[in-house]
Amino acid sequence: MTSTLTISGLTKRFEGVAALTGVSFSVAAGERVALLGHNGAGKSTMMKIILGLIPASDGRVEVCGAAPGSAEARRRVAYLPENAAFHPALTGEEQLRLYLRLRGEDPRGALALLERVGLHAAAKRRIGTYSKGMRQRVGLAQALIGRPRLLVLDEPTSGLDPVSRRDFYALLDALAADGASILLSSHALTEVEARTDRILILSEGRMVAEGSLTELRRSADLPVALNVTPRNGYASEIAANLPGAIEAGGLLHLTCSQSDKLAVFGRIAGLGTKVADLEVLPPSLEDIYSHFSGRHGQ
C-alpha cells in the first residue's frame, strides 16, 4: 500500500535533551493510526515535525511524498488541535467561508462542510455562543477543506458528548474509506481501541510498541480473564474443575495465560449444561498501554 506518511530514524533534541529518539513508522493510505503516550512522551513534538513547524535533528520524514512544511505537504495535510479557537464574533458559516477563501476554494461550500460535522442548524450563530464541542466540530470542518490525504488530529474528541463522538468516528471511517490517512493522538483509550487499524505507543521519546490491537495483545502476553456463570447447584463442581477459580457474586472468576486459553475453554466446554454462561475479557488497550509503558520505564 502507498504510504502517506513515512518516518525513519526520527530524532529531535532540544538543547541536548532528546524529545524523540530513533522513531520509525509509516501510515498507509486509508489507514487509521492511534498515537498513544503519556504527557511528555514526544507526541506533540512529532506532530509539529510532521506539520513542518519545527525541524528534525536527525532522520527522514516524508509527508505525501514531500518534505514537511513544503507547499505540497501543506496542501495535502490537515491538522486539528485539542483546543480549536476561532473569532467569537463570526458565525460558523462566516468562519468556514474565510478558511475556504484562504485555501482558494469556493466559499459557498461552507454550509456543506458544517452539515458534515452536524452544525448546519448552528451555521448562522456566532461562534462565541458555541460550546467547546461545537467549536471542536468547526475545527474538524475546516480540517476537511480541500480533501486532505493526511489528517493529524490531537485529542480531537475533547469536549464532545457521546453522540458527537460516535458521529465523529463515523466521519473518520468514511474519510479513511475514501483513502485519507489518519494519525490520531488521544488519551481516550476506550475510543481508539475499536476505531483504529494500528496503534503506536511512545514512551520517553521512543517507540515501545507498534501493531494492531490483536498483535499488541499477542506481544504483551497478558492474562485473559474469564467469568463463568454456573447453573444452580453446580458452582462447587465447576470450581473443582477450574483450579484457581474464585467464587464471588454468583460467578466464578479466573485468569489464564494466552497459551493456556484454549485448554481452559475446553475444560469449561466439557462441563456441558452445568455452565449457564461464559464471559471472556481479553486485555484492554489500557492494560496493554500500561504494560508497554511500564516495561520501558524499568
Rank of each mutant, 00 (worst) to 15 (best):
residue 45 T to M: 06
residue 26 S to F: 01
residue 99 Y to K: 01
residue 58 D to Y: 00
residue 96 L to S: 06
residue 35 L to S: 10
residue 36 L to P: 07
residue 20 L to M: 08
residue 112 A to S: 14
residue 100 L to N: 10
residue 97 R to H: 03
residue 61 V to I: 13
residue 51 L to W: 06
residue 101 R to H: 06
residue 64 C to I: 00
residue 81 P to H: 06
residue 102 L to K: 02
residue 90 L to F: 14
residue 110 A to W: 02
residue 55 P to S: 12
residue 59 G to A: 06
residue 27 V to Y: 07
residue 52 G to D: 11
residue 63 V to M: 08
residue 59 G to D: 10
residue 73 A to P: 09
residue 102 L to T: 09
residue 86 F to Y: 15
residue 71 A to K: 12
residue 72 E to I: 04
residue 67 A to H: 08
residue 87 H to F: 14
residue 111 L to A: 14
residue 11 T to E: 09
residue 93 E to K: 07
residue 76 R to L: 14
residue 62 E to A: 13
residue 40 G to R: 02
residue 88 P to H: 07
residue 28 A to I: 00
residue 96 L to D: 09
residue 91 T to S: 15
residue 97 R to P: 04
residue 53 L to G: 05
residue 23 V to P: 05
residue 97 R to K: 14
residue 94 E to F: 03
residue 50 I to P: 03
residue 64 C to Q: 08
residue 88 P to L: 04
residue 19 A to K: 01
residue 76 R to N: 13
residue 104 G to W: 04
residue 34 A to W: 01
residue 46 M to L: 15
residue 29 A to R: 14
residue 21 T to Q: 14
residue 19 A to S: 14
residue 34 A to Q: 04
residue 108 R to E: 15
residue 42 G to E: 08
residue 66 A to D: 12
residue 98 L to G: 00
residue 66 A to T: 09
residue 40 G to Y: 05
residue 113 L to T: 10
residue 108 R to C: 08
residue 12 K to D: 07
residue 53 L to T: 06
residue 28 A to P: 01
residue 99 Y to R: 05
residue 38 H to M: 02
residue 115 E to P: 02
residue 20 L to K: 03
residue 100 L to R: 02
residue 11 T to P: 05
residue 44 S to Y: 04
residue 64 C to T: 10
residue 107 P to N: 06
residue 99 Y to W: 13
residue 89 A to F: 12
residue 106 D to A: 12
residue 20 L to G: 07
residue 71 A to H: 06
residue 106 D to T: 07
residue 61 V to Q: 04
residue 74 R to H: 13
residue 106 D to Q: 05
residue 111 L to G: 12
residue 88 P to I: 02
residue 17 V to T: 15
residue 53 L to D: 13
residue 56 A to G: 12
residue 110 A to G: 11
residue 58 D to G: 15
residue 31 E to F: 03
residue 21 T to P: 01
residue 22 G to L: 00
